[in-house]
Structures are given as structure tokens and as C-alpha cells.
Write a protein that binds this DNA or RNA. Structure first.
Lengths: 206, 206
DNA sequence: TATTTTTTGTAACCATCGCTCCACAAATCC
DNA sequence: GGATTTGTGGAGCGATGGTTACAAAAAATA
């Protein structure tokens, strides 16, 4: 779909784009992040991206295709701090402490919409968007899996009891993470989110 | 807005309704619960309510007014188990254990959409629905306040340390509750939700 | 300069959205 | 029965949704 410049020497034929694709994609991502798929209209998108309808379809195919790209971009960006945090510290508790602190920061950046684009997406939507709904469920599952893997590492390291129910614990942390997304969306401060994250770590003690 | 039958003796004038208002409202509530406000179309509503457009406006005023009624109905129904659970048991921990178990049950009933109608509503929506968004934020705040009050009772009863940060703890439980709503929406089983709720209680065992 | 390739601007398209109007139907009151 | 009141059915409205068609514009190639 996207024409690759295999030979950077050869210049592109045809009329050049008047906009930067990546910049436009980021703008679209933020709008989707803030308003969700159904809450974001086509006109809002083209306005914030600074392009016309024809350029939109020429470059991104459709609204749904653009949403997919936006989710991918967000997931890449989010998994950066997500994975990095989980690799922080010595103990499993340290890692999850870092994870929640990173989430609290990511969910309350002044240069982005609040909360998590994935956590609060398509929880309620029309049947026409059932495919997107499933996609978001998968994305949330990916995050939960990543947490589970880190917990398994903790068991292997003797950090956690071998009897630890990894699925349940990962589900618990995933639940807190998703809840944090909603709290952030509702205007909770970064400090409040961090405090909540710290409280969630009390499952480790005892 | 609604005509009250002050004198039950006197029969209602005019052509009688061909549908039961409460039944239609419940049907609408479930559809909104499942699809959200923007995800539910006018035609979907009239279809599931079994009435025509004119009867719809005659009885409910507008889509938004109906949504308000639906939210009120849900809040009444939900606060029933919510408040009852918080009054359960001796200790504060008992009360919250009951609360999470009640939530787990309420969020996974086969005769209703999964999850919480309020927790996952309008987290992402178009600016046109900003009033509804604020309404939902208020509703979520009400739940958090109720939890905070129960925690304060625990301090008064000597159940919790006087130094307990009630706001933070209530925020934490509220976060877990909202996360449970998303988990349920994603298809988590009742057992999983209960397990997660139990883990959330570990904040009590210092 | 002519040709080819790609992007852009403009103007529509068609379905759906929430909603209104109005003539008619069905009940009570006098 | 006639008047009054209230609910119903159906047609259709203006606005907006996402999408497409088409020709002009701007670049490389020949």
C-alpha cells in the first residue's frame, strides 16, 4: 500500500505531498485518543491533519484504516515506556512500581490527551464497530500478557512464591492499569495516580 | 413532565399508550449500556423499545432526555447493591469484600450487558457530548464518595488507622472498580473478577 | 516540449442521523 | 352523540456522516 523508496537516489515521480504524513498521523492519533473512533468525525480529522478529503483517502485509505495506524502508533509509543518500566529495578515489585509511575506520567502529559488511548477505547460502541472492539480487546490482552511474563520472571527469580497465580495477578494489575486510565480521563492528578499505583503494590507484601 | 395520577379514581383521558413506559425504558437502558450514547442510534432505540418515533418523542422528549432517564434508572439499580454491600459485615474490609463480590456479580449477569454502564461511559466522545461526559464523571465521583464515606466510618470505628488517607484509598478502590468494569466488558469471568476484587483488599493488610 | 505519474481541490454522492409534522385513532367527559 | 384529550403511524425534513469522481496542478521522465 505504501510506496517504499528502495532507491533513495531516484526522486519520486508525480506531484509531491504538501504535508508530512507522520505529522498528520500523530495529529489524527491524538484526536482519536481524545474522542474515540465514533466520536471523531471525518471533517474533524481532515481539519486537524490539515489535509483535504482527497489527500486523506489517497494517503490513508479510509477512516478505519487510519484508526488502525493510529492505534499501532500509540501502541508502539506506549509499549516503549511500558516495557522499559517492567525492566526496571531488581524485584518484581520494583518493576511494577516503575510501571505504575510511568503510566501515571504517560496518562497525565499536558502535550497529549489524558488517560490511555487503548484502555478506554470501544468499551461501548455500535455493532458496526465490533471489529474495532475486538481489536482493542486484543490490545488490552497484550498488555496483560506482558505483565504476566514479568511476573513469571519473578517466580523464576525466587521473587514470588512458586504458587503464585500468575493469571490472577496479571489480571489484577491489568485492572488497576485500566482503572487508572479512566481516573486520568476524569481529571485525576498525576500525584493521585501515583498514589493509587503504590497502593496497588500492596498485593506483594504478605 | 410526567403526568401524575393524583386521583387514581379518575381514568386517564385520551388514547391509552400501547406500550409500558417502564419496560421500554429498561430496554433502552440496556441498549445504551451496551453501546453507549453515541453508539446507539435512534432507530435502534425505537426498534428495541417497540415504539414509533412519535411515541418516542411523546413519551421521552429526546434521545438525550431518554439517556438521562436510563442513567438514573441504572444508578438506582446499581446503588441498590452498592450501598447494600457496603453495609455488609463487621469490618471495613468485610464491607469492601462484599462490594467487590457484588460488583463481580452485577457485571457478569447473563440477563444484562456485561460491565458497568457508568464506569465505561463517555470516556471518549465527541465534544458535542461534553455535557454527558461531565454527567458520567459526576456519577463516578458519587460512587467514589460513597466508598470514602464507608472508609471514614471505618476510621471512626477504630477499624482503620486515624492517619489513613481516605481520599487516596477511595480513589484506589474506585480505580479497581472501574477497571473491573472494563475487564467484564472484555469478557472476564465472574470468578476472575471476584479473584481480582479479593486481591484489591490486600491494601487493608498493611 | 510532450508524456507520465502522483497529489490536490472542488463538488458532489448516498446513507444515516435525530427529529418534526400532521392526519387519524382511541379513549374519556359532557 | 359530540367535544375533548391524548397516543399512533407514516412521510419527510435538514444536517452530517464517510466516501467518491474528476479534472487541474506539480513533479520526474523521455
Amino acid at each position: 500500500m505504501v510506496t517504499k523508496n528502495i532507491q533513495t537516489q531516484r526522486k519520486a515521480r508525480g506531484r509531491p505531498s504538501s504535508f508530512d504524513r507522520e505529522t498528520a498521523l500523530m495529529a489524527a492519533m491524538r484526536l482519536f485518543w481524545d474522542r474515540g473512533y465514533e466520536g471523531t468525525s471525518f471533517d474533524d480529522l481532515t481539519a486537524v491533519m490539515g489535509i483535504s478529503a482527497s489527500s486523506f483517502y489517497n494517503s490513508f485509505g479510509s477512516k478505519e484504516a487510519l484508526y488502525h495506524e493510529a492505534i499501532d502508533a500509540y501502541a508502539r509509543q506506549a509499549s516503549a515506556w511500558f516495557v522499559a518500566a517492567l525492566e526496571t529495578g531488581q524485584t518484581t515489585a520494583d518493576a511494577f512500581r516503575a510501571l505504575f509511575e510511568a503510566a501515571a506520567c504517560a496518562f497525565t502529559r499536558c502535550d497529549s490527551p489524558s488517560g490511555c488511548m487503548i484502555a478506554s477505547a470501544a468499551t461501548q460502541c455500535s455493532p458496526a464497530q465490533s471489529r474495532l472492539k475486538e481489536l482493542m480487546i486484543d490490545q488490552r490482552r497484550l498488555a496483560e500478557d506482558a505483565m504476566k511474563q514479568r511476573l513469571a520472571l519473578g517466580v523464576k527469580a525466587g521473587d514470588l512464591a512458586p504458587t503464585t497465580d500468575l493469571d490472577a495477578l496479571a489480571g489484577y494489575f491489568s485492572t488497576v492499569m485500566q482503572g487508572l486510565g479512566i481516573q486520568a480521563r476524569d481529571g485525576a492528578s498525576r500525584e493521585k495516580l501515583i498514589e493509587i499505583g503504590h497502593m496497588a503494590l500492596s498485593v506483594f507484601k504478605q
